[in-house]
């Protein structure tokens, strides 16, 4: 399915068979950044983007919060610990998990229109 660039997260979930780990109501994302290097995300991701990564450490939440990234997508079915999820809830960051690889997820997100 297609959705607008400023996509409702529910549409993103459908496109990549993702399940939310946190409450996701009305979160919007604009574009996506993919990296497993935290400093790289700090340097190059834009605020408001979806961030896809295989990293599930709590520092992902810190980096997302620092960079005003509203949603993080964990690929390859990797799920973070409950305390990481709790921290994300506290920071108001949506966490998602998809069984797809980062490459597959990226392809489907692009196809679905999540690009500028």
């Amino acid at each position: 399915m297609k959705f607008e660039t400023n996509a409702k997260l529910t549409a993103v979930l459908l496109a990549i068979q993702a399940t939310p780990l946190t409450s996701t109501s009305e979160t919007n994302v604009q574009g996506c950044y993919i990296s497993d290097l935290l400093s790289d995300v700090l340097a190059h991701a834009q605020p408001g983007m979806l961030w896809a990564t295989v990293q599930i450490h709590r520092n992902v939440v810190s980096v997302a919060a620092t960079k005003d990234i509203p949603a993080v997508l964990f690929t390859c079915g990797r799920k973070p610990d409950a305390n990481v999820i709790a921290e994300a809830e506290e920071e108001g960051i949506t966490l998602l998990v998809t069984p797809l690889t980062t490459y597959e997820a990226a392809g489907k997100l692009w196809q679905a229109g999540l690009h500028e």
Binding site: D36, L37, L38, S39, D40, L42, A43, T53, Q55, H57, N59, V60
Partner: peptide
């Protein structure tokens, strides 16, 4: 493995 060590920390700080 945790995603650190990108070699961008100090350059990021300076930037």
């Amino acid at each position: 493995e945790l995603g650190f060590g990108a070699g961008m920390g100090l350059p990021n700080m300076k930037k």
